[in-house]
């Protein structure tokens, strides 16, 4: 069990963030940044968390009901189309791309101001991709068999997946994107884990931070490898933004439905996704 810091008594309840005034010392900034992790969460935070958790449980209950009853509960009345679920999927993929754009592309373009928001941008990417991955899963008729979309050896003689299906490539694309984004996010956090490790008193918390920081010692060598890796990952993530959304758009564009069947979809979707608002209501 994680024990909170001994300093975390009532007097050390999380104070509202202090805007940096003047030219504070680096140690002060580190203190300020790390303070939420040292302290117990405040009432406001608890209230927000409770509200979010309540909303989440409503969502979870709905999804549970849907999985237990059948996806007819979506209420879809244009049965041949996808509906809110896939629209939402596209929406979340778009949100995720906005995060990658901030963190990766701005890194490649050496925009210094990105550092102030890149952690939250990357986290947004991760959670957006998780949300995005959730929707294709729960829009399936039999989500408990979703693992069938992965090619794995089986006793069916062997029965593989359909490599012609855009949906399959969608799965691959989302998975790749998720992996790269996770790695990118995690690599960026290593020095910070090290800072937390150094601040943490001995105990479980320290052990966890020690493992998470992968032996970071702040030397030039680690910093230089860190920079290189970050650049490489940014370079990998940027084309993925293009490929993922192209593939997502192909889910629609390869169908022969009037209105969907158009080659403009991949290029058309990318700029729109980059604004993170790339959602059109598709019935």
């Amino acid at each position: 069990m994680i024990r909170f810091d001994h300093r975390a008594d009532r007097s050390l309840r999380l104070q509202p963030p202090r805007p940096p005034v003047g030219n504070p010392a680096l140690g002060r900034i580190t203190d300020d940044v790390a303070r939420p992790l040292d302290a117990r969460p405040g009432l406001g935070w608890c209230a927000c968390f409770a509200a979010a958790a309540a909303a989440l449980s409503i969502g979870a209950a709905c999804v549970g009901y849907e999985i237990a009853t059948g996806i007819g509960t979506w209420g879809l009345n244009r049965t041949v189309g996808w509906a809110f679920d896939i629209t939402n999927f596209v929406f979340w993929v778009g949100i995720g791309h906005a995060g990658t754009l901030i963190s990766a592309i701005l890194l490649l373009l050496r925009q210094q101001w990105r550092t102030s928001i890149n952690r939250s941008a990357e986290a947004m990417t991760i959670f957006a991709v998780i949300c995005a991955a959730l929707f294709p899963l729960i829009h399936m008729g039999r989500p408990w068999l979703a693992f069938w979309v992965f090619p794995y050896p089986n006793s069916r003689g062997s029965l593989w997946v359909n490599f012609r299906s855009p949906l399959l490539w969608d799965v691959f694309a989302i998975n790749t994107y998720m992996t790269i984004s996770l790695a990118f996010w995690y690599i960026g956090m290593i020095p910070d884990f090290a800072t937390l490790r150094d601040r943490a008193p001995a105990g479980l918390k320290k052990t966890i931070y020690s493992i998470a920081s992968l032996g970071w010692n702040g030397s030039h060598r680690t910093w230089s490898r860190y920079e290189t890796l970050n650049i490489i990952l940014a370079g990998l993530a940027t084309p993925l933004v293009i490929s993922v959304h192209s593939i997502v758009s192909m889910d629609f564009a390869t169908s022969i439905l009037p209105g969907w069947h158009t080659t403009i979809f991949p290029p058309y979707w990318r700029p729109t996704s980059r604004t993170a608002t790339s959602t059109r209501w598709r019935r």
Partner: peptide
């Protein structure tokens, strides 16, 4: 026999 699909297909 295992009576799996792979076994039938063999």
């Amino acid at each position: 026999a295992p009576l799996t699909m792979g076994w039938c297909l063999d």
